[in-house]
Amino acid sequence: MTALMHTWFMTVRHLRALMRQPWWIAISLVQPITYLLLYGQVFSRIVELPGFHAPNYVTYVTPGIVIMMALFGGGWNGMGIIAEIDRGVMDRFLVAPVSRAAIIAGRLVQMSIITVVQAAMMLGLGWVLGARFEGGFTGLAVLMLCAVLVALPFGALSNAMALVIRRQESVIGASNFILLPMTFLSPVFMAPTLMPRWVQRVSLVNPVAWSVETARSALSAHADWRLIGTRLVWLAALGLASAWLAARAFRSYQKSI
């Protein structure tokens, strides 16, 4: 109960801080719009390749970009915790009776809220650009869930890494090294059957791929609920494993004070 309340206090604190940064708001609005317009236009003709089963590329790529943005949002989440350690804000919370779990959980809840809002925005824009989803409301809900379930483990891992490394430069390097390849080794932009064999194999163990496939299936006219169910379970399991790692990283930080 206390942990939940404290998590909410932290969430509000983080949301408020973001709302005070006009540049952050501008960038997080412009970035997904640019991606959608750019990728939607540049690759628009690849749907004509055999193997693509989509009415148009925007319909295909919109859920992909929603997941990509969620992945990046999660992957960069750890940067903030380094800033808070450096500014002494973290230790200030630790000397107060603050629920330890809430310190990380608050960041992740805030990130999830941002992920959902950003996803809704991109879906609206996608619709304007011609994306149509047969899966209806359920499909959209599953997409949101997939986005959150991909943001959470990477958010937790990013925080874990930040708590152990504690240098922004190193975290930037590691995130860059991981996030882009994960996106391109998944069917975010390209139909799985058209990717090289080795990429197809890699994407079997790529959570980004799990989540994009799940979302696309749910958004299509013939949702494969078995696939959706198993992938969601895998994502949830990954989330739990990452949460455990983040908790361990947090304890290692406490030991180092």
């Binding site: 206090f9 604190r13 408020r16 005070r20 808070e84 500014r87 002494g88 804000v89 000397v95 603050v98």
Partner: peptide, 29 residues
């Protein structure tokens, strides 16, 4: 932690929040 107040050598103020918000949050915890 309930019985003490503690001010660290370097500030623990959240500079992205107002003074009132900093105090209120601390009180809630």
């Amino acid at each position: 932690r309930h019985a003490i107040g503690s001010v660290a050598q370097r500030s623990g103020v959240d500079v992205n929040a107002s003074g009132r918000e900093n105090l209120t949050l601390q009180g809630r915890f």
